[in-house]
Nucleic acid binder design. Structure first.
Lengths: 110, 110
DNA sequence: CCTTCATATCGATGATTGTCGATCTGTGGA
DNA sequence: TCCACAGATCGACAATCATCGATATGAAGG
């Protein structure tokens, strides 16, 4: 998966015919939202004070191991759905609301 | 998966904290959009003349076997993303735009 | 340096799922 | 009643993926 995948994809699905190749890209993007842990990560980070959250707090908040959380954060970051900022030993994450909006707009109706 | 799954679910993910149980439901809903063939079905049906399409035309249009197409149509129908109407020997499908809108609104931003 | 701690990577595994051939069901016409 | 055809169901298989323990990397502090 290429970096910032979502920025450059996501034709509207319903308002015009979609090509097989575009369908692959949009499906890959929605696949990221098709996991409960990743949705909870987005929700936790978006609603955290200051709109940011330290990765160190996520394993306990989610009830998942540190490697599992790191895996999901990596997928979300590569896709551009969250951004990562290193501060000392800790990694802080923010939701990239623009990317979420791109995905939402792919579902716009006639 | 219960009938009309999408009608009753899908809290906004970003504007308020989501519960683990709601996250499961929303993820299950997005999983339906996380497949290129299902996205192409939605696009083909939505853009077909009259907003409806016969199932008999889909295997050729999609390059997939009849059982595969039937499987995807069944998933989309159970979830309430499309509706099915039997006319003689043929089954005609329409996109339930309201259900798509529910999914879209789950991605609303602050 | 050396230790400590946060995070990433690796390897393995169990579960899910997209796919199709074969077959069943059900409808309409002869 | 029988045939032809649309669509659903079944069974099997390959591929994908979420998960975790073990281990590697990398940064701050002493």
């Amino acid at each position: 998966m290429r970096p910032k995948m979502i920025e450059s994809c996501c034709e509207p699905v319903l308002t015009e015919p979609i090509t097989p190749s575009d369908a692959e890209q949009v499906a890959a993007a929605f696949k990221l939202l098709a996991d409960p842990i990743r949705l909870r990560i987005l929700s936790l980070v978006a609603n955290a004070p200051g709109g940011e959250m330290c990765a160190c707090d996520l394993p306990e908040a989610l009830g998942r191991s540190q490697p599992t959380v790191s895996h999901h954060l990596s997928l979300l970051t590569e896709a551009g759905l969250v951004t990562r900022e290193q501060r000392g030993k800790w990694a802080w994450f923010r939701v990239e609301r623009e990317s979420v909006a791109v995905l939402r707009d792919a579902l716009n109706i006639t």
